[in-house]
Structures are given as C-alpha cells and as structure tokens.
Design a protein around this nucleic acid. Structure first.
Length: 111
DNA sequence: CTACTGACTGATC
DNA sequence: TGATCAGCCAGTA
C-alpha cells in the first residue's frame, strides 16, 4: 500500500474513480469529472492522469474522450495513444474502422 | 495574484 | 464525418 500520495484531493478523487472502472469497460473524462463533482472539469481529469506517468497500477487506458476515441495527446510521436488502444483491445474492447469505440456497448452506461 | 497550458466537451459550419 | 470556436477546471510558471 505504499502508493505515492496524490497532490490534491481532486486528483485523489479522480484516481479512486478510475481505479473502479471494470475491466473491458471504458469511461469518458466527463463521466469521471462528474463523478468527482466537477462535470465541467474533464480537462483537469486529463491533467491528473497525465501526472500519473508510467509504472502506475491505475487503469488510465480505460479513460477515453466523449467521442469514444483515444485523445491525440497533442503529439503524434507519443506512443501512449497506440498503447491505450492495444490495452483496450486486449481487454475485449472493439474499435471500428474509424478507430472509435462503441460507448453504448462498453461505456459505463452500457445502454 | 495573474497568465498560459492542456490526455475535454458541445455547438456550429 | 471532419474542422473550428468558445467555455470551464486544475496545475504550473
């Protein structure tokens, strides 16, 4: 249990919510933000996950944008975007020809 | 304290 | 379907 302490309560709440995302399922930044009481803080959620870095046990790859796609990260030389897709497919999440995920099937709502 | 940035979102063209 | 604009939030300089 020697996990590195989060920098803020907001980050801690985000981590706790992401850690509870079931395997084979994905959540959007907006969902996580709303879960921590800040439905408009989706960007801050992304910042929190970015601060995690590699070597974390947190399933950050199960968090995607509202479009059901992996965010471009702002740099095409960043392998994390491709890694995220690989990890999701490894858990049974399917991507369509446009590289999008059917949130209605693997989303937390699952409707 | 002020300004800028960014793994976002929804609306509009 | 894809690109652009404006709005909101937390962290860092």
């Amino acid at each position: 249990m020697s996990e590195p302490a989060p920098g803020s309560a907001f980050v801690a709440a985000v981590y706790a919510r992401v850690a509870e995302i079931p395997r084979g399922r994905v959540a959007t930044y907006g969902e996580v933000a709303a879960a921590v009481g800040r439905p408009l803080a989706a960007r801050a959620v992304g910042q929190a996950l970015k601060r995690l870095g590699a070597g974390t046990e947190l399933p950050w790859w199960r968090v995607v944008n509202a479009q059901g796609r992996v965010s471009p990260r702002g740099g095409d030389g960043w392998p994390f975007a491709a890694l995220q897709r690989t990890l999701l497919e490894r858990e049974g999440v399917s991507f369509d020809a446009a590289g999008q995920i059917d949130l209605r099937r693997v989303g937390l709502r699952g409707l």
